[in-house]
Simulated assay, not measured.
Amino acid sequence: MRFKPQYSAFILLLLIAMGCKQQNNHAGELNDAATLPQKLNFNQMGLKVITSMSNKKEATMSTLYGNERALNYTKSKGDSVIGGMVFALVSWKQQDDERWFGAKIPGQFQSVEMIATKANGKTFDTSYKIYKDKWQTDPLTEKTRIKYILAQKASVMP
């Protein structure tokens, strides 16, 4: 039995058509689940990224933002609190990245923790609040969270 040339052309065209199948790579799409609530006006705060972290046990990831004073504080070797610092720790649930096998990306927004320092003579007042569905304070964990956030060091950036 002899193989006919028209069958060869048909098989070749079939292979080309299968190779050209368009796949959705989600290029240019935004991660809507990770969007911060509009009422926070987070973009207007002008904060810069200080560092990021993940908690595998709780399946969350967080990014610490701060103003210029907060950024300089986290870069310095000292641990003296200065007035005028503003920190925002934003946390999300983790989700699998559909574009990159094994990678995790921010998922559902969880909270924003805000810390601000204010000079009061020779001492400093530190305020803490957390936003989940509304702004609130948590006296039971406030001191622990302030200590944790102020202990973060800036990631090395170019």
Score class of each variant (00 low, 15 high):
Ala9His: 06
Leu64Gly: 00
Phe101Arg: 07
Met45Ala: 06
Phe124Lys: 15
Gln94Ile: 03
Leu12Trp: 10
Ala88Gly: 05
Tyr73Asn: 04
Lys143Pro: 01
Leu36Glu: 04
Met85Gln: 06
Ser52Tyr: 14
Lys4Gln: 06
Phe42Leu: 13
Leu12Thr: 13
Met61Ala: 08
Lys57His: 07
Tyr128Val: 06
Trp100Met: 10
Asn72Phe: 06
Met45Asn: 00
Thr144Ser: 12
Asp96Lys: 14
Gly107Lys: 05
Asn55Met: 12
Gln44Glu: 15
Ile130Asp: 05
Cys20Thr: 01
Met85Leu: 06
Thr137Val: 11
Gly28Phe: 09
Val81Ile: 06
Lys56Trp: 00
Val112Gly: 05
Asn55Cys: 11
Asn120Trp: 08
Lys93Gln: 13
Ser80Phe: 00
Met61Asp: 04
Leu40Met: 13
Thr63Trp: 03
Lys93Asn: 11
Thr137Phe: 03
Gly28His: 13
Ala116Asn: 14
Ala103Gln: 14
Asn25Asp: 09
Met1Trp: 09
Val156Ala: 11
Pro37Val: 07
Val86Gln: 14
Gly83Asn: 13
Ser155Asn: 13
Ser62Met: 15
Asn120Asp: 15
Gly84Glu: 02
Pro5Leu: 11
Tyr7Pro: 03
Leu150Arg: 02
Leu15Val: 10
Thr35Ile: 11
Met157Tyr: 12
Ala103Leu: 11
Gly102Cys: 02
Phe42Asp: 07
Tyr7Gly: 09
Gln22Thr: 08
Thr144Gln: 14
Ile115Trp: 03
Asp138Ser: 14
Val49Tyr: 06
Glu29Ile: 04
Ala154Phe: 00
Glu29Lys: 07
Asn55Ala: 10
Asn72Leu: 05
Ala17Lys: 06
Ala17Glu: 06
Gln44Ser: 07
Thr74Gly: 01
Ala151Trp: 05
Leu47Thr: 00
Val49Gly: 10
Gln136Cys: 06
Ala151Phe: 04
Ile16Tyr: 01
Leu47Pro: 04
Asp97Lys: 00
Leu47His: 02
Ser76Glu: 15
Leu150Cys: 07
Asp125Ala: 12
Met114Ser: 09
Gln108Cys: 04
Leu15Tyr: 05
